[in-house]
Design a protein around this nucleic acid. Sequence first.
DNA 1: CCTACCGATCGGTAGG
DNA 2: CCTACCGATCGGTAGG
Lengths: 194, 194
Amino acid sequence: MPSVEKMSRKEQVIRKAAELFRDHGYAATSMRDLANALGIEAASLYSHIKSKEEILQSLCFEMAELFRASLEKVENQDISYTEKLRLGIRGHIEVMSKDLIASAVFMNEHRHLSQPYLRDFLLMRINYINRFKKIIEGGIKHGEFGGIDTKLAVMTLFSSLNWMPNWYDPSGIINPTDLGDQLAGMLIEGLKTK
Amino acid sequence: MPSVEKMSRKEQVIRKAAELFRDHGYAATSMRDLANALGIEAASLYSHIKSKEEILQSLCFEMAELFRASLEKVENQDISYTEKLRLGIRGHIEVMSKDLIASAVFMNEHRHLSQPYLRDFLLMRINYINRFKKIIEGGIKHGEFGGIDTKLAVMTLFSSLNWMPNWYDPSGIINPTDLGDQLAGMLIEGLKTK
DNA sequence: CCTACCGATCGGTAGG
DNA sequence: CCTACCGATCGGTAGG
């Protein structure tokens, strides 16, 4: 994350928008709110961005790409399913912790994307979830995990992961890597339940 | 949940609003959208309800009361911390499953409450969470759970619980009680991690 | 980045 | 529950 001074004006607009979208929701944030927070007139925003939704699109799809790349690295390794799951969880949390604001918007505001962006977004998300699901199914098959309902397991996993931007305080005592390790430990232990 | 025919017109308005709030968000749902879904004019809504926000207030505070009552029953029992936590989780899920739509609104749209309602709501929520936290801390103290970070544990718990209305299909194979048992099993097992 | 402005839509009221 | 309507605000454009 570059400092505010080094960001292009467009980046500054998008980052400030992300804050407002996270705090008040996309629909409840007006372009006048955004302009006001930046100290300019609403009309001036349009020299930097094409539309309100373009901002949401940038935020959602840039995060999606980071998550995808993180999981891909894990899948290509020759390790146990337990380790794949652990690294997958750690990777997801590391990506989120690098931009908690954009992560919260990615999670909670993507439904305001219009078509065909919404459709593309949901397809990417279901693909990402299914790849985690396959790791869990592999783990069950090989006896690493108990015979738990996979849908429940993967939904519990994603609930825990995705809610994090709403409560995690990076300035607090626990750092992102430790958080990832602890969360992975808890969830993996839970998956061993018979 | 009474059938649509038996609901008062006011109840019908609130329930339809809950659906729209869940699907599109509170801010992105207009009173004209709601009127349209009910087959009446927007102005006619105001013979049944005082304002748009009054609907949100009903939904949020009625659910809050159900959650509070459910937890209170568990706290008064003379059982282990593990069992208290298990019953607390089951209770929470049972309350949600009786009205998944209102639960989703409770979870995702409460931030659109105005003051002083928002403040009251957040105080109730932090109180509810703290009571679960105390059960977990009791369990750690008595050696029932491992020495996990309690904030992480309780946030993971609530993430899993509260995201459920966004994916659980009650017409599917798993019923709410079994879901509660499985989820409680996973999470409790996770808490035993050293 | 600003002034000036657009048509559309918002939550809600008056009066029946 | 409807018609008629209100002032405020919305996302966005023209032209500089």
